[in-house]
Design a protein around this nucleic acid. Sequence first.
DNA 1: ATTGGCACTCAGTCATATAGAGTGCTAACA
DNA 2: TGTTAGCACTCTATATGACTGAGTGCCAAT
Lengths: 351, 351
Amino acid sequence: MAKKSVSDTVVNERAQHFLKALIERYIRDGQPVGSRTLAKDTGLDLSPATIRNVMADLEEMGLVSSPHTSAGRVPTITGYRMFIDSLLTVQNLNKQEVEKIRKELMLGGGESAEVLKSASQLLSGVTQMAGVVTLTRRDKTSFRQIEFLPLSDRRILAILVTEDGEVHNRILHTHRDFNRSELDQAANFLNKSFAGFDMEVVRQRVLQQLNDAREHFDQVMTNALTMAGEIVNVSENKEDCVIAGQTNLMEFAELSGLVQLRKLFDAFTEKREILHLLDQFLDADGVQIFIGEESGYQLLNGCSVVTAPYQVNEEVVGVLGVIGPTRMDYERVIPVVDITAKILSAVLKKH
Amino acid sequence: MAKKSVSDTVVNERAQHFLKALIERYIRDGQPVGSRTLAKDTGLDLSPATIRNVMADLEEMGLVSSPHTSAGRVPTITGYRMFIDSLLTVQNLNKQEVEKIRKELMLGGGESAEVLKSASQLLSGVTQMAGVVTLTRRDKTSFRQIEFLPLSDRRILAILVTEDGEVHNRILHTHRDFNRSELDQAANFLNKSFAGFDMEVVRQRVLQQLNDAREHFDQVMTNALTMAGEIVNVSENKEDCVIAGQTNLMEFAELSGLVQLRKLFDAFTEKREILHLLDQFLDADGVQIFIGEESGYQLLNGCSVVTAPYQVNEEVVGVLGVIGPTRMDYERVIPVVDITAKILSAVLKKH
DNA sequence: ATTGGCACTCAGTCATATAGAGTGCTAACA
DNA sequence: TGTTAGCACTCTATATGACTGAGTGCCAAT
């Protein structure tokens, strides 16, 4: 409460202003920002020397650093963090752009796989970075129909259709051959028992009934249940992740190390890691930003990730976002990600 | 027949020997080969000066060239061509490696999509370059069964199963809603009419009958045929192409230009161009090699492609191969591609 | 608190020197 | 006639030093 503390906060406010200017400049040019440049950049009419003093303070606070004695200053990770958390002034997208996104996403015709792909491409196209859309919690849907078709060699093709029109199929290997009518019987039994039920429920029932089966049910039903068990499980863990525009990242000098770039690309084709990473943001609401170094994954050094979750019928089912260099234009990227998530949610809404 | 011509061919034979040695050396080291080095490399006991004379001849013939006056020689495209066409001594793979490939490919469990993916990964893994497998002529297969399921909003899910166990599904948009029994009727009609027929035949019949339909058939059948027409067409043009290990190419200095690398990667995600390129080798039998510059696609400059077609039941359905720097170890890559194609054909054989 | 001035540091650029690799040519040799 | 040794020459790569310009930190003046 003493004079000193008051003056402190005043200094800090101005310092923050400079920090903001510095980072915005750095994002534009990609080069260390010196006192002279910054002096011109901020509206305030101050001499470079003054700026230097402030920059020294900022450096002491760990918000900026200089690559070497006679270079300007560059934001540090914590500098970026502060910028993102409290200094950012996001622009709104103009209606034209919003409309473009909406149109683009409508094209897919409502087929979810298609739409997700468009969304990813859209994100990468608009931002010139890598776009990514994950689909983790599969839309809670219900059992519609199951069919079995005999193939040769004790193999059976199982087709499971869920209410939302997704088709899962899988080849099952059995211990003996089944003929067409046996399979039809099995399918009939299952369809009668489970049609319309929530998939989660189906899963439980199948397991449960399979336990009681030896005593109560005949062979047909046991077989049916066994097969159902297999395919029902498959349809569960189908996590997915669509990435687009990876090659855009090759343009950024800061990720220049071919080694790092390669690791990144490998992670993209592997997908698992990316998926795991983005899943952390499933439950956040609204846009989240995090900076590569904060994640522990060293392969994201120099990168930032901007994400937002999206919904189907009010329920979050995945996240979408953009991966690019930490030196990215957040003020533009944030609204893009935000809007895209909202529009995607709208498009995916089922009636 | 004069003395001169005889001596000429003698010179050429020796020159070819040197060319071979030079290219092999260059493939190993990646650096221009000088006369001294080459003198040691070839078994013959000749002085560097002699070698220089020969190299001058080779240069005159356009088989090698030197980047600058005081560097060694580097093979030219035509040099590589000659090497590949007539100088190459391919090694055979040892049984261990062959066995490894066979095992790896067996894993997929006969699901063709899976197996192709393994093949691609295998090629890239073994050669440390990019592996690619195309599937162009879809296995000539026959109609097994079709099903229609009503979704909401005048959308119908059509599921077509072919004899080889592939499942094609697609959402059809219709001009009015159909109920379950209408759809069942339609499916029944189609299944009875076409079960077991070759897909090509089915396609023709559908079109033909659709023409006659207005007069002879009732509404149900017309609808059925219309729907069948749509999905049958879809199942036709499903060309595909699986690429793996693209990032391996980042390791090669000769493709270092980020720009070229990016173009290459973009082509890989686009796939179309690659597919078109490889299709040229569908009808060649055995391993084919071609050098990027020869193709007209300037994006393959500095690259070579080694391909071999593979079959299902004696019929060629696609090609597989490896894309890497022109400076690649052909003597090893060729047998790998060759064997992989053979094993893949064996694995895909249907009984 | 702000500023001008000044000495200092450091990356980048240019010219120059030097070493090394390799060539082409010529003359000698078998 | 094919092969070889020798030699002058070319060109790259590398190191070196000088110089410039950008930018800093600090001190003393306002």
